[in-house]
Structure formats: structure tokens, C-alpha cells
Simulated assay, not measured.
Amino acid sequence: MGMRILQETRDEIVRLYSKNVPIKELMERFGVSRSSIYNYLQLDRMHRSTNGNMAVTFRKITSMESELERLRLENEILKTCGCYIDAPLSEKLSGIDRLSNKYSIHLLCRTLNVLRSTYYHHSLRSPEQPLWEKEDAEIRPIVQQIFDESKERYGTRKLKAELENRGYEVSLKRLRRYMKELNIKSKQTQLKYFSSSNRKYMYRRNKLKQQFLQTAPNLVWVSDVTYVRVAKDFYAICVVIDLFSRKVLAYEIAPNNTAELIITTFLKAFELRDRPDGLLFHSDQGTQYTSYKFRTFLRGLGVKQSFSYPGIPYDNAVAESFFSSMKVEELSHHFYDVSKDLFRDVAEYVEFFNSKRLHQKLGYKTPDQIEAMYQNGELEQLSSKLEA
């Protein structure tokens, strides 16, 4: 049989409840059940009623407490979610996302007047990918492909030009971001070779005078020699380039830089171009180019000679630029133990230079493309590209 509670104890429970002491604390302090406390409260309200209205029931008390708790939580949600009931739907959905770990979705949606079906559709669907992210996902692998095809030689400007050839408009700033994200960087100079000479120069006429833009093939060819180390020796590389298209017409590699090397290279280009008339051949004043043997050889073919002024490499800038590019983009990244590796890499680079490498001075066209345009009679379009 349950313990009887004195009237004084009941009155004390009612008094403390009216002072906002929680029911749970009253249960623990006086050792009574929740239903008993509600019964005491009901009896107290019935005794206090003076107008004969309906008495407060246990259900009404419980409902009122639940309503008060709900209102408290709703007020708390409105203070912390950062938006109001009449805010745009996107803001309310974001607020629900932020508070979903603290409050129930049902309560959040009710407080902010959002249908639960609307919220679940928002939270479960895949977020729409922005247009720039879609473009990045499409273009980034193409940038990597072009860079790999150039053997890591292309920088931002040539990558941009090649992308335009493939139908993609990309700014340099965006392209630099792609290269940073892909962790790619064009090859840089690692090895440089220098030569010096104390010989005295004779005056030789510079007929070219840095007129590097020519209007047709086989008007002016330029030539130069550079050196590459193979094991403990140095090999000489000689090239002949047509100024019109910047195409490497011929090249030769030999252990020694001799007049025979220059003659062999020139003759190879001369035969390839069907022995053109009225040709001007420009070079620096290296001993092989100024030798009696080579000058006599050119005169016999009806070729005029032009020379750079001593100490002014800009007079032969096109040939110098080719060797600089080949060293930066290929040769300086290898140490050659045997000559066959050098022969292989030079052959590969010359093929790349003529058929694939985009040239800024040629309107980001390759030498082969420029010559094909000339052969097809596209001279006006070609001229506008060169002038730009």
C-alpha cells in the first residue's frame, strides 16, 4: 500500500511548483510520482476556481508544457538561424542545413514555414555544378595533353594558342591556374655553353640588317653553329633556317666544327629546295663561315653572303633563338654519354620545331603551316598574321 502524503507536504509541492521548481526535482525531493504531483496541482486549481469554469486536467497541463517548450525552441531557432520566416527559400534551406545537427528537421521546417518534402528534395539531390567548374573539368586534361605532346616545352602563351586552334578560349590568368593545379612547368635552361675568341675581325658587309620578316621562301637563309657536350667531348650542331617560315631546312652534327660541316649542311638544304636563285645566306663571322673554302663554294652556286657585325648576336637573332629554344626545351635536360642519344634528340626536336611548335612571330602557326599557307595562295591572311 502506497505511503500517504500529508496535506502540508502537498501544499509545499504546489507552492514550490508555483516558484518554477521543475517537476523532476520535486519528484526526487519528496519521493512522489509525476502523476501524483499533477493530481495535487489539479486539486489546487479546482479549489482556487471561484467562477465555476472548467477545471484544468492533467492532459491540458502536459499539453501546455509541451507548447511552452516548443515555443521556446522556435524562439531559439529564429535567433540562431540567421533568417526570418519571410526570408527567401534558399536562405531558409541554408539555415536548416546549419542547425540540422542541433534540432529536429520537423521542428526546423515548422519554425521556418518550409515543407519537409521541399527540404528533403533540396538536401538529397545532387548540387548543380557551376559552369566554370564544368569548363575546368573539360579543359584541364586538354592542357595536360598539349603540354605532354610538346615534351614539356610549351609555356602559357603557346598553350593558349594551341587551345584556340582546338576551339577553346582561355585567358592567360586562367591558364596559369591550370598549370599550377596540374603542377606543370615548361622546361628551363639548365646548361649553357660559352665560347670565346681573341681573333681580330675583318669588315664584312651585313646585307640583311635584321630584316627578319621575309615575304616568300628562299629569299634569305640564316645559319649558326652551337656545341653540346657528349661525355668529355663537345659536338658541333649546324643548322640552316629559312627566314620566311623559320623552318629548319637542314642540320648536321659532327665532332668538329669545320668548313666541311657548314658546306654539308648548306648543300643538304640547297638540294632540298631545288637550288633556288637569288639566295642571300646570313651568318655570324665564325671562321668556318668566313673561310676561303666556304666563300668560294657559295660564289660558285651564285649565293650572296651576309655577316653579322662582330659582337652583335641580334644580327643573327633567328638562328640564335632556335638554339636557345632547343637547349631550353630539350638538350639542357640531358647529359649525353654517347653521341647517338644526341643525334636522336636533335632529330626529334627539329621535327617538333617544324611541324608542331607554335611560333609567336608567325601568329602562333608552325613553320610547316606557314609554308602550306604560302603554297595555297593565302598570302594576305599570312601577311596580316606576321604584321600582328
Rank of each mutant, 00 (worst) to 15 (best):
R110N: 05
R110M: 07
T111F: 02
T111I: 01
L112D: 06
L112A: 00
V114L: 04
V114A: 01
L115Y: 09
L115I: 03
L115M: 04
S117Q: 07
S117D: 02
T118Y: 02
T118Q: 00
Y119S: 10
Y119E: 07
Y120C: 09
Y120D: 12
Y120S: 12
H122Y: 14
H122S: 09
L124N: 15
L124D: 12
L124E: 15
L124V: 14
R125V: 13
R125P: 03
S126R: 15
S126F: 03
P127M: 11
P127W: 07
P127S: 11
P127D: 13
P127K: 14
Q129S: 14
Q129P: 03
Q129T: 14
P130F: 08
P130T: 07
P130W: 07
L131R: 12
W132E: 15
E133H: 10
E133A: 08
K134N: 02
K134Q: 05
E135I: 01
E135T: 12
D136R: 02
D136I: 01
A137N: 08
E138C: 00
E138T: 02
E138G: 02
E138I: 05
I139R: 05
I139T: 04
I142F: 12
I142N: 10
V143K: 06
V143L: 10
Q144C: 10
Q144N: 13
Q144V: 12
Q145N: 14
Q145I: 09
I146Q: 13
I146Y: 08
I146D: 09
I146C: 11
F147G: 11
F147Y: 14
F147D: 08
D148T: 15
E149R: 14
K151Q: 13
K151R: 15
K151I: 11
E152K: 14
E152T: 14
R153A: 15
Y154A: 11
Y154Q: 04
G155P: 05
T156Q: 04
T156D: 03
R157H: 01
R157Y: 00
R157Q: 00
K158W: 00
K158M: 03
K158L: 00
K158P: 05
L159A: 09
K160Y: 00
E162K: 11
